[in-house]
Design a protein around this nucleic acid. Structure first.
Lengths: 229, 229
DNA sequence: GCATTCAAGATTGGATCCAATTTGGAGAAT
DNA sequence: ATTCTCCAAATTGGATCCAATCTTGAATGC
């Protein structure tokens, strides 16, 4: 992933002195989410240890963590593999996203400052200008900016984890102009509702935004059953 | 934990051949949730290894898993500890429970058979007859029985994890007769709504059931700020 | 020719060993 | 007496080693 010079967005590179596991988790998660590690691909401990110039032990702990996030499947005495893509999971995750993100938005709106809405709008400006390879990150940054003021760390972590799983499916279809165009329009509408502090409208828009995205992704996934495990 | 001879409820004892980590996770989780391991209590690797007659390695992996569930706090180079109790977390978790469990119930109601509702009712009968030490488990079993037909494994796992965290707070107050009595009444009302397949009423009842329980627990916790870390 | 068995290799699971970091206290300087 | 410094003990993090299990393929029997 060559870092575009002008858009670091919100990456957390983390030197993270003395903790190999955290670095492994971050890198592997990014590679799984981006599709660089394909669904179903086996993850051999020795191989990963070599690749990251470490021993098998931190690898094992990292795999446990990724398993708990649903990105890795761990079978005793058989090994780890990148979790396969599954249309049923896609539907489930998008339902959960609606529940979690509308909750975050409801709790965030009373706390939202105009400055924060402006920040979200600037991210949206960049998202519409950027190419498809940055779509995922900017899309997530936009949503996160609106949710963060809710001040609920656990909920935000849950949303981030669901987002990672969802992004795995996004890779296939983010190339579609239709998809991105509609997403951008819905983001603008959501911003307007937030500016008016119209909670009901915002929640309604967000609900449809997320569930429509899920349905679209599901269609794409069914049409081209790519690289499953 | 001496197993009560007549009420195995729904424990999953899991022989789980060849996987120490799973056993460690289950046992530690149960001990943390029950309060046997106190909030803030340090969890030394060597000590746990001795206690479970194993080496430090499975302990380390188990602690990682429990950290991802929010039951353990892991500080690099300092060690692990039972996660402290925090009123803010209690509120947050109960909000998340409302979101997740109402979703599960909505998706379950169309699939609910009368037999399953009967099963939930029988569990409720037992809950009202049982003492306070079984209240938590039977309470959870009742809810789970109503949610399982939704057929969403990921959502159910999320609800279970939230339930574990919530149960840590329940320990303080499950002794209260008021609390249990109201819970029982609300469960009966919820059952009635499910029998009628009245989704709106059921969701409304469940929402108030959970959030009122959260508020009550919060009051208890504020009154007696017991064993925080 | 085909299925079954068994053994060797590969891979994971667990134990032990060494290194790095933190903590706590003894001792010296102010 | 107090505070600062520095060293030793305790503890975690990482590497290596051994055991257990799974896979694979060849040999054997039908």
């Amino acid at each position: 992933m060559p870092s575009s010079p002008a858009t670091p967005i919100q990456r957390t590179p983390r030197p993270k002195a003395g903790d190999q596991v955290a670095a492994l988790v971050e890198t592997l998660r990014a590679q799984i989410v981006s599709g660089e590690l394909r669904p179903g691909e086996p993850l051999r401990q020795e191989l990963l240890a070599d690749r990251f110039a470490t021993s098998r032990m931190p690898v094992r702990e990292a795999l446990r963590v990724l398993e708990s996030e649903g990105l890795v499947v761990l079978v005793p005495h058989k090994g780890a593999a990148v979790a396969p893509l599954d249309p049923a999971e896609l539907e489930e995750v998008y339902e959960m996203r609606v529940a979690a993100e509308t909750l975050a938005l409801r709790r965030a709106i009373p706390e939202l400052s105009n400055a924060q809405i402006d920040r979200a709008e600037r991210i949206q400006d960049r998202a519409e200008a950027a190419g498809m390879q940055d779509f995922g990150a900017l899309n997530k940054a936009f949503h996160t900016t609106l949710y963060v003021p809710c001040g609920r760390p656990r909920l935000l972590a849950h949303i981030a984890a669901l987002g990672d799983v969802a992004d795995r499916y996004l890779t296939f279809t983010a190339g579609s102009l239709d998809y991105r165009d509609r997403s951008h329009r819905e983001h603008r509408a959501l911003l307007a509702a937030c500016r008016q502090r119209d909670e009901a409208a915002a929640v309604d828009l967000l609900t449809r935004h997320i569930s429509e995205a899920g349905k679209t992704l599901l269609r794409y996934l069914r049409d081209q059953p790519a690289g499953d495990g």
